[in-house]
């Protein structure tokens, strides 16, 4: 096993998720996630940003195998959980036979049950992600039941109460129903449910977006505290760069199902390279007029193309002011620009 493999908690490579959607009489694939690769180290937070509909949720759900991946490889803690069998050479080119069809290696499709204890998810909507017919105790207790993590009723209860305490919920409310709680409290219930199995990795899918601004900060701080206490790694999905930059060690930028740029949080902030990242950053108004005048702002024009009608080549080219002929012909690959900074662009 190479050093890299032992260091990463989670590795995702060439992950694809195509949804078949009906168009008239036939089905066409909607490429919600197309060839995405990244890795997360233990205890690290990777932020994932991008406009709504770019496939962030799908990435999170697919790597947890809530959706069956169309293709790709998912490795967790050194174990391959899923591998569709495509092989890639050192230059990350698909290995094909003479007819252009991929040569398949070993396919892997592991039973996820044992890994459900290691990888968890906090959902975006604290309202719809909690069963309205269950008490808080049963919601948090369900993972304990499923994985048989207690030996007596009393132990189950103790665990639930300490989880509630951990996420800042009043233990007296254990017998209440989710609908009796405010949004922030519900999200804490969802977090407690994810933490119940003591996971090493949690996907936080816009876990704070649905909350009030003042409560967002509380919950984000809680995520940080939990990470310090428990050493859990996060894939922190958000469309709000403020939150992501605050919590993340590294940030990945997605556009139309593709990875555009990935770098350390501060590196991305100080030295954004991809035109899409630049436009995301300059969409933020700059308080100081002096700085504003100096900065060259890029305003995003036009709409995001439909994922059913992807532009050829670079998906961003319809809105990119640096676009050249090459951009329409060839899909740019993620390239290392040093400093662990990867960018997928021909011209930047």
């Amino acid at each position: 096993m190479s050093e890299k493999e032992t260091k990463n908690l989670l590795e995702v490579s060439h992950l694809k998720q195509y949804f078949p959607v009906s168009q008239g009489l036939h089905k066409v694939p909607l490429k919600a996630v197309d060839d995405i690769s990244f890795a997360i180290r233990p205890g690290e937070t990777l932020g994932l940003v991008g406009e709504s509909g770019c496939g962030k949720t799908t990435v999170g759900r697919t790597l947890l195998r809530l959706y069956e991946p169309t293709a790709g490889k998912i490795t967790f803690d050194g174990e391959v959980l899923f591998d569709s069998g495509e092989q890639y050479d050192e230059n990350d080119k698909l290995i094909v036979d003479a007819t252009g069809r991929p040569i398949y290696g070993k396919k892997v499709n592991k039973d996820m049950l044992p890994y459900r204890k290691e990888m968890q998810m906090v959902f975006q909507d604290p309202y719809s992600s909690l069963n309205p017919r269950m008490t808080v105790e049963d919601i948090i207790g369900e993972p304990l039941d499923v994985h048989k993590l207690y030996s007596s009723k009393a132990e189950r209860r103790d665990k639930i109460l300490s989880l509630m305490e951990l996420v800042g919920l009043n233990a007296e409310h254990a017998m209440r129903y989710a609908h009796e709680f405010s949004g922030g409290q519900r999200q804490r219930i969802g977090i407690a449910r994810a933490l119940a199995v003591d996971p090493k990795f949690i996907v936080c899918d816009e876990a704070v977006s649905a909350l009030d601004v003042s409560i967002q900060a509380q919950v984000v701080n809680m995520f940080e505290e939990l990470q310090e206490k428990l050493g859990v790694a996060y894939l922190f999905i958000a469309h709000d760069l403020l939150v992501v930059h605050h919590i993340s060690d590294r940030i990945a930028v997605m556009y139309l199902g593709r990875m555009m740029e990935i770098a350390d949080a501060d590196e991305l902030n100080n030295n954004p390279m991809h035109p899409y990242t630049l436009s995301l950053l300059s969409a933020v108004p700059i308080p100081d007029p002096e700085t504003a005048r100096k900065s060259s702002r890029i305003v995003l024009e036009g709409d995001v193309p439909s994922p059913l009608h992807m532009p050829s080549g670079c998906p961003f080219r319809t809105r990119c002011k640096y676009a050249t002929e090459q951009c329409a012909m060839e899909m740019p690959q993620l390239k290392d620009r040093g400093n662990g900074h990867f960018v997928a662009c021909h011209n930047k």
């Binding site: 469309h239 991305l268 902030n269 969409a283 933020v284 700059i286």
Partner: peptide
């Protein structure tokens, strides 16, 4: 200031 620029991308 730099840090603040990165703040919210979508909220005006």
């Amino acid at each position: 200031l730099k840090k603040r620029q990165i703040l919210s991308s979508q909220v005006d």
